[in-house]
């Protein structure tokens, strides 16, 4: 039982919260800007490597580098929007989807040129797991969960109580009516990219600190993040969190029934199942 908890459930929840941070971004873009953002995994990768860059250049500890990376990735996300996505706004959304696939490749190749393709790590500190009753948790795992919790709570409060948070929800709910109310489309778009970029960086960073940094890590995680967003219900932040946790747990538990190389196919199977059975997801999101 304890083994089950420590070998499957804990890693599942940690992976799940990493997916959740990425899935929130995907679900916000899907809900507000109305397209599937296929550069999202690579945006997370960029964030992770920017944090690495900040540790090297500024001599920061990894966790101190995280806010820097989040800020830079937020700017990067907005910059990509301004340079590449914005002029496609008046055209069929699927063109932006195609563009984002290319942006993903471009981001990945920049990381590969700058940092090379060999796996890297933030530090070599060996973190021993501490016992909490029957649970064994490593400090970085605790930090990942705490960070996810803090970011999600902040975001939910922002969306619920702040004027611009409400504007984002209004835009996701009924864009025409939001415009009639005088909501500035560009303002909401800018805000969305900032939030989404920062969360993607956090997700990539947590992925890197819990495993290692590879240039493909974001791309590989993206399928799981999309599955989490669809599972939770497109446009639903709380859904993305639940979806992320479910996918993370399912992947870790899948090794009990299928050979471990197929772990990363779990998300795909869940995605197909949810599209087949309940396309609006757990929390009744949008179906585009």
């Amino acid at each position: 039982m304890m083994e089950f908890l420590n070998f499957y459930v804990v890693p599942g929840i940690v992976t799940g919260s990493i997916y959740a941070l990425g899935a929130i971004g995907i679900t916000l873009i899907f809900g507000i800007l109305r397209f599937g953002h296929f550069a999202h995994g690579d945006l997370a990768t960029s964030g992770a490597y920017l944090a690495l860059g900040a540790t090297a250049l500024l001599g920061l500890t990894p966790w101190a580098a995280l806010p820097v990376a989040m800020l830079l990735t937020a700017l990067l996300a907005y910059g990509i929007h301004r340079l590449f996505y914005r002029h496609l706004e008046s055209r069929p959304k699927i063109l932006t989807v195609i563009a984002s696939l290319g942006i993903g490749m471009m981001l990945r190749s920049v990381v590969q040129v700058v940092w090379g393709v060999d796996p890297l790590a933030y530090g070599s500190g060996i973190a021993r797991a501490q016992a909490f009753g029957p649970l064994m948790l490593r400090p970085r795992e605790i930090a990942t969960l705490a960070l996810t919790l803090a970011l999600v709570a902040t975001l939910l409060a922002f969306l619920r109580y702040s004027k611009w948070g409400k504007a984002m929800r209004a835009m996701s709910d009924n864009p025409d009516l939001a415009r009639l109310c005088g909501v500035d489309n560009d303002g909401v778009t800018r805000l969305t990219w900032f939030i989404v970029g920062a969360l993607a960086a956090a997700s990539g960073f947590c992925l890197g600190i819990n495993t290692e940094l590879t240039t493909m890590m974001g791309w590989s995680a993206m399928l799981s993040m999309f599955a989490a967003a669809v599972l939770g219900g497109v446009g639903r932040v709380e859904g993305a969190v639940v979806g992320g946790l479910v996918i993370g747990l399912a992947e870790e538990l899948s090794v009990l029934v299928v050979p471990s190389p197929y772990k990363s196919a779990t998300a795909f199977v869940i995605l197909l199942a949810i599209l087949l059975l309940r396309p609006q997801g757990i929390f009744k999101g949008k179906v585009l």
Binding site: K163, S172, D173, L177, V183
Partner: peptide, 18 residues
């Protein structure tokens, strides 16, 4: 489509005064 369906009545009114 003249309301924000996923927002509360109060929030709908608030959006009117955006």
């Amino acid at each position: 489509d003249n309301v924000f369906r996923e927002m509360t009545v109060h929030e709908n009114l608030e959006m009117g005064a955006f």
